[in-house]
Design a binder for these strands. Sequence first.
RNA 1: CGGGGCAUAGCGCAGUCUGGUAGCGCACCUGGUUUGGGACCAGGGGGUCGCAAGUUCGAAUCUUGCUGCCCCGACCA
Length: 450
Amino acid sequence: MRLSRYFLPTLRETPAEAEIVSHRLMLRAGMIRQESAGIYAWMPLGLKVLRKIEQVVREEQNRSGAIELLMPTIQSAELWRESGRYDDYGKEMLRIQDRHERDMLFGPTNEEMITEIFRASIRSYRDLPLNLYHIQWKFRDEVRPRFGVMRSREFLMKDAYSFDLDKEGARASYNKMFVAYLRTFKRLGLTAIPMKAESGPIGGDMSHEFIILADTGESEVFCDNSLLGLPTPARDVDFNSDLSPMVDNWLSYYAATSEMHEADRFAAEVPDERRVTARGIEVGHIFYFGTKYSAPMGAKVAGPDGEEKPVHMGSYGIGPTRLAAAIIEASHDDNGIIWPASVAPFDVGLINLRTGDEATDSACSKLYAELESDGVEVLYDDTDGRAGAKFANMDLIGLPLQVVVGPKGLAENTIEVKTRNSGERKSIPLQGAAEAIAAMVAEGKQSLDV
RNA sequence: CGGGGCAUAGCGCAGUCUGGUAGCGCACCUGGUUUGGGACCAGGGGGUCGCAAGUUCGAAUCUUGCUGCCCCGACCA
């Protein structure tokens, strides 16, 4: 993409309302624009990031055996009256009426709808287990939205719903999501720690929040330092095998949010030097809720014995919009964003230091074409701005590699490559530059492609 | 929902107390000089001063009402 033809409204100054660093940087980098309290438009650069996050989430959901569908944003109140939640949900639910004065709502979540879809088609345990997910916009009318897309009213959520004949089956489904989540966050360049969470009215031990550590996190968390170094489940993990040893290993270390924290246990179980007390951002939440919806809504299947029973369900959420902000919280410096390779809106920022200079223009054009044909996504700054402004802008939007082409280097047949993450620059020969850069891009991506 | 604050050009702000031609920096447009870490000179465009009523000869400024937004707390992916 040529910057001169792109829509990238960056800001040199920080809008006054932005409190935390991710919000500031997202506004300055022209990723988002607030349209109303807690409601944001995603500008081209932000959308590219969002789509890449979605794609990683999607790939790992699919790998685990979950199946994608797409449910509507607007739901009928009728469904929610069946489960009893229409009255329970409170003001967070945005209620609307259509022209026939039917009660509708903008979905804050989809348990009722997915249960309705399930019960319409599935009758037998032979069709289980089943895990259906979608990535769809949600609306929760938060009392006080804040921190940009970190806590917005409208947000994108991947929500998966598992269906099993019994609790044992549900636990296996739960473990699949547990492992898929570990892989998902790792691929996004994050270290997410599963922490025991409020399990709600069902009780039991099957509810975990996935938390990343960041100074601006909203809640205080406590965990064993050992968790930070645990290996991520491998790409070829067999999701049909018994995953409980793997999951149990993760759960054998102490980790809890402040609501679930037990100071005595923490002190007793975790040696002094391994105790971590930090702030955390919740980026995922998984839980089992049994027959909470299937029973009242009549989602039943026949078991091997021919007897019909309500299915056991779980739900599993990840917020891609929140993740975009969370990744920035975890990865930035004074100059701007530092995107992990897996979600960077472009792989390479190509900077032409002297537009209008024939040699520089043609070297850039050639490099640009070669990289693009190699499948490298390039944002080519072909504008006639000054060097300093171009560097600053490129640092701000945080592309992993910056390729700098100017008359000085070209005089010696070299160009410069800067790694955003380390700040390291090196000159490479113009000859074969595209191949060398493509290799660096591939290497960067591979490091996250666990 | 309780407490606090803000609303003046795309962004950051001054002007409001003490009513009298709506300003500054950045950004934008034109021309020129520049060009390896946010250049310089000259010229220029852009505002129902959040909305509505009121007071006044005259309101960004005073009064009242409304709306939007932000922050702190309680609640949530």
